[in-house]
């Protein structure tokens, strides 16, 4: 493939993934609101409600506070939205290979996941509002808190694949080719189940959803990081939130549920792409339901001090237990 072809494929792929991320992200937000409403014995908004909200926000006045740093204030939402789309380019979507192919691995994705959060921090500090400043400080604390369990989960999986003799265990293609559940014995399956639960609990913090939304906390901080944002900029953060939900669910799917429908049922390539895509969306919805909707409906918000101890202590210890089980499983075969 020539350079022009590659460039064309990347540009078109990026545009397609941006469109997919926008539509799927807002739809999954709408489904989340509908499911949450049903769990609270309400009817809830229509599933297209986030689209209506974004359409409205795009037509509102875009206020820049007097104390704000305008260029940073305007840049932060764009960076947040663009960087979440970028992560999507590294993740496999069903049977469709990532746009950037094998260029990125799991470690890159873990690093890229911090970029939208850092953009929000920059936007919060640039707002020139005390509420936004406190929100930005809290966002940084939460960012550091959930990194530990997330890193444990990622390392444990890659280590086990390496122990099983897989080359390049951090690459998503290798993880997709060797589903972790098939590699290990019973002890390892328990370990991986623990890590799956941990990843599901890291998701709400990544997305600033209840119970880990101390940085937005509309009842205490009046919206925290986003307090000064209105109109177009707020719409960009809203859309980034939707895309991030897809990214986190797609990451969990890529690591823990990498199966495709076409692996089990024989079908023609054209049908396989559609079927795998539909199967992928079903898996994403399932993960999003358990890691976002169910958790946020069943819990109240943690205080910022509790968030740190929950992640560093409880999920840190739980992650190490999972890692230990996986290590024992790897050596059980040797002994």
């Amino acid at each position: 493939m020539s350079l022009v072809d590659t460039a064309l494929a990347v540009v078109l792929g990026t545009l397609a993934m941006a469109a997919f991320g926008f539509v799927a992200g807002l739809t999954v937000l709408g489904i989340d609101r509908k499911l949450a409403a049903h769990m609270q014995a309400r009817i809830g908004p229509p599933i297209r409600q986030p689209f209506i909200d974004v359409a409205k926000l795009l037509r509102k006045e875009n206020v820049v506070p007097e104390n704000a740093i305008p260029w940073l204030f305007h840049a932060a939402p764009v960076i947040a939205f663009a960087s979440t789309i970028t992560i999507l380019l590294y993740l496999p979507i069903g049977g469709i290979a990532p746009v950037f192919g094998g260029a990125g691995d799991l470690i890159l994705i873990v690093y890229l996941l911090t970029v939208p959060a850092l953009a929000m921090v920059a936007g919060g500090f640039a707002s020139g509002s005390p509420y936004a400043t406190i929100g930005a400080q809290r966002e940084m604390v939460i960012l550091m808190a959930y990194e530990l369990p997330l890193a444990i989960a990622v390392i444990a999986i890659a280590w086990r694949l390496a122990a099983a003799g897989v080359a390049e265990p951090f690459s998503l293609a290798a993880i997709a080719a060797n589903p972790v559940w098939g590699v290990v014995g019973p002890l390892g399956i328990v370990g991986f189940a623990i890590l799956f639960v941990i990843l599901a609990w890291v998701t709400p913090a990544e997305l600033s959803r209840v119970p880990f939304d101390a940085q937005e906390a509309e009842t205490e901080l009046a919206g925290g990081l986003l307090v000064e944002y209105s109109g177009k900029n707020f719409a960009l953060f809203y859309m980034a939130q939707g895309v991030k939900t897809i990214v986190m669910a797609a990451l969990a799917v890529a690591i823990f549920l990498p199966w495709n429908l076409s692996d089990f049922v024989a079908m023609t390539p054209a049908v396989a792409v559609v079927a795998d895509f539909a199967f992928f969306l079903a898996k994403v919805l399932l993960v999003a339901f358990f890691s976002v909707s169910l958790i946020r409906v069943s819990m109240a918000r943690f205080r910022i001090t509790q968030i740190v101890s929950v992640y560093w202590l409880w999920f840190g210890v739980l992650g190490l237990v999972g890692l230990l089980l996986i290590v024992l499983d790897a050596y059980a075969g040797v002994w």
Binding site: K60, E218, F234
Partner: peptide, 17 residues
């Protein structure tokens, strides 16, 4: 349940209509 009509309370006047 006014949320079924898209009505919700927000925490900041910047987000409000």
């Amino acid at each position: 349940d006014p949320e079924r009509f898209g009505i919700k309370l927000v925490g900041s006047p910047r987000h409000a209509d």
